[in-house]
C-alpha cells in the first residue's frame, strides 16, 4: 500500500512536471491525497487526466456566473483553483451550474475545501452522481464505484444555508429527556448549594 504522504509527494511532483507552478502542485497533491483518504479514486483520475492534458485545450473560468459554459471543456485544476480562490464571493450566487468539465472528480476537493472556508455545506451534482460536502470533514455520496469519470456534461453546485436537519419537535423531546440528569431543586437546596448570591443587589 502506498502511504498518503507518498501520494501527496508524487502527485505534487507530477503536477509540477505537467507545467503547473509549485504552489498549484502543492494544492493538487493535498487534494488527491484527500480524495484517497475519503475513499475516492483520486490517483486514477489525475493519472488519466495528465495523459490527455496536452492533447486538448482545456479552459478556465476567471469569473463565475450562475451558469458557466466553456467553448471546449473546463480544466478541473484551473477551474477548481479559480472556484476555491473566489468561493467567498461565489457563495452569494447560491446555485451555480457549470457545463462540460473534464475529469470532474479532480474538481471535487476544491469544492470540499470551499465548504470549509465558507462555513456552509455544499451539494455537488456531477451529472447523476451526488455529493454532500460537509465542511471538508466528510463526503456523503451515491458514487460508490471507482469508475473513471472522464467528462461531465452538467455540474450543479449549491451552497446550503446553515440550518438544522431535524424538527423542533425532535429537539424538544430530546431536551426533555436530557433534563432527567438534573436534580429537582427545593428552596432549602437552593439556599445551601447555589454558588452565586441569590440576590445581586448588594
Amino acid at each position: 500500500m502506498r502511504s498518503y504522504s507518498e501520494i501527496d509527494t508524487i502527485v505534487k511532483r507530477s503536477t509540477k512536471a505537467k507545467g503547473f507552478s509549485w504552489g498549484v502542485a502543492e494544492e493538487i497533491g493535498k487534494n488527491i491525497k484527500q480524495l484517497e483518504l475519503f475513499g475516492l479514486p483520486g490517483i486514477k483520475h489525475i493519472n488519466q487526466y495528465f495523459k490527455i492534458f496536452n492533447n486538448e485545450k482545456f479552459e478556465n473560468c476567471q469569473s463565475f456566473n450562475k451558469s458557466n459554459r466553456p467553448q471546449n471543456f473546463y480544466c478541473p485544476i484551473k477551474l477548481g483553483l479559480s472556484f476555491f480562490d473566489q468561493s467567498i464571493s461565489i457563495q452569494d450566487l447560491n446555485d451555480i451550474e457549470i457545463e462540460k468539465m473534464a475529469y470532474p472528480l479532480i474538481f471535487l476537493p476544491f469544492v470540499s475545501r470551499s465548504s470549509e472556508i465558507t462555513g456552509k455545506r455544499i451539494f455537488l451534482k456531477i451529472d447523476q452522481k451526488e455529493f454532500l460536502l460537509n465542511f471538508n470533514q466528510s463526503i456523503y455520496s451515491n458514487y460508490l464505484s471507482s469508475e473513471i469519470v472522464e467528462k461531465a456534461d452538467v455540474i450543479k453546485i449549491q451552497f446550503l444555508e446553515n440550518k438544522n436537519n431535524f424538527s423542533e419537535e425532535d429537539w424538544k423531546e430530546l431536551t426533555k429527556l436530557s433534563e432527567n440528569t438534573f436534580v429537582e431543586e427545593t428552596d432549602e437546596l437552593k439556599q445551601k448549594t447555589a454558588g452565586a448570591g441569590l440576590t445581586d443587589n448588594d
Binding site: 507552478s21 502543492e26 464571493s89
Partner: peptide, 14 residues
Amino acid sequence: KIGKFLVRNNDLRH
C-alpha cells in the same frame, strides 16, 4: 483580495 490576485498569479501561489 488575495483570491482575485491568485486567479492571475498562480505562479506565486507557493
